[in-house]
Design a protein around this nucleic acid. Structure first.
Lengths: 211, 211
DNA sequence: GCCGAAGGTGAGCGAGCGCTTAGTGTGGCC
DNA sequence: GGCCACACTAAGCGCTCGCTCACCTTCGGC
């Protein structure tokens, strides 16, 4: 929010909370490098270089390369969770809230594809402790979507046989956007968000898929 | 087919065509290692060790580590394409054929998760030429699914506004199964296949989702 | 029984990795 | 102005990487 600045190549909107300035620059550089080449194929020299610093500078702000990934992953998951929570707690019918949740979740994965890629696909590169922490956040994400679907089933708006399985499928569909979405492609993040909201309402058998 | 042998941890069914024996053992070892740790985090010593050979033996059968990934990726994509083609060319209504295609495609991604992970998620680790070759196969996969959906729209069975976008979403949903599916989990590949076939028929607005 | 091809090994190469350390520039505080 | 804490760099350590090379076995053909 407020005066978020957008860089040309990537998205540096949400990292405002990271201080000091040099630490943030390193983190943004790491996000871009991890998204492009993957965690293991990225060198600490590459990250430092993108941030305009010497290789050793990285270790003033972060203990290891893995700590960078851990920080990125936690901040990213917290952002994703916040987006879902905001959408899920708005006023409205389960149909409206599910559509809003899916479209904003998808917009985030498409628009912030660089960050989302790292967050969603580099989980296995974390050590056991960090991974466990992130998995707990993922369970909260899962619960948020499941709750909307359960409420829709209870109210009779949705027709779902397997709530857990459908929740998994809905989240899987949204997350995979980060894999295939391309900024040069034919669709804007907003268009994909709307398309996917419609598709998900169909998946849960919503009575009148709005829009 | 025929006398396919199943190993305990991974699936070695489709690699029968790879000869000689030592080359196949190395390839299967590479699939397992790449799936577990990712291409870049896997060492040639690890691959050779899993195959019960010395590090140098790898280079008798393959020129580079990347050639291993290339071979795996091409064979995997050909197998995936074959599965879709078989399902898509069977007799039946578009509804029946789409359900069959999705359920068998998903079964392959869930059951052969080890292979599918490498095939679907390590594309970016290939060089430009190899990547271009694989991308051509992916376009064929995409066309196969799109054709069924188009036929369903023409026959009036399906109600789809954005055929390309929906095709993309259907494939994305199926492919992402390889990311989250766990052999120790609560669902069998067959159950996920059936659930997903139902969800996809809903996505395309099929009149009477069988099963 | 000798021979060459095929398939394998042990040792090790040059390079690049994550990370450390000793030293340098700089700005705030009294 | 002297001083220290802080941010940063140049150099490089120890290690492991992908890959190579000289050498060894095994085995079918004659």
């Amino acid at each position: 929010m407020s005066t978020a600045e957008e860089t040309a190549g990537g998205e540096a909107q949400a990292w405002g909370e990271v201080t000091p300035d040099a630490a943030r620059r390193l983190l943004v550089a790491a996000v871009e490098a991890f998204a492009e080449r993957g965690y293991h194929a990225t060198t600490t020299r590459d990250i430092a270089g993108r941030a305009g610093m010497s290789p050793a500078a990285l270790y003033i702000h972060y203990k290891t390369k893995e700590e960078l990934l851990h920080r990125i992953s936690r901040i990213g998951h917290e952002k994703a969770l916040e987006i879902l929570r905001t959408a899920s707690r708005r006023e409205g019918t389960p149909t409206e809230r599910l559509a809003g949740a899916v479209s904003s979740f998808v917009r985030w994965h498409a628009g912030g594809r660089t960050t989302a890629r790292v967050v969603q696909y580099e989980l296995d590169s974390l050590g056991p402790d960090a991974r466990a922490e992130i998995l707990a956040l993922r369970r909260e994400v899962d619960g948020e979507v499941r709750r909307i679907i359960e409420e829709g089933v209870e109210s009779g708006e949705f027709d779902v046989l397997d709530v857990h399985g459908t929740t998994l499928a809905v989240l899987s569909l949204c997350i995979d956007v980060a894999r295939w979405f391309s900024v040069g492609g034919p669709r804007t993040p907003e268009e994909v968000g709307e398309l996917y909201a419609d598709l998900v309402l169909r998946m849960v058998g919503a009575r009148n898929p709005a829009a």
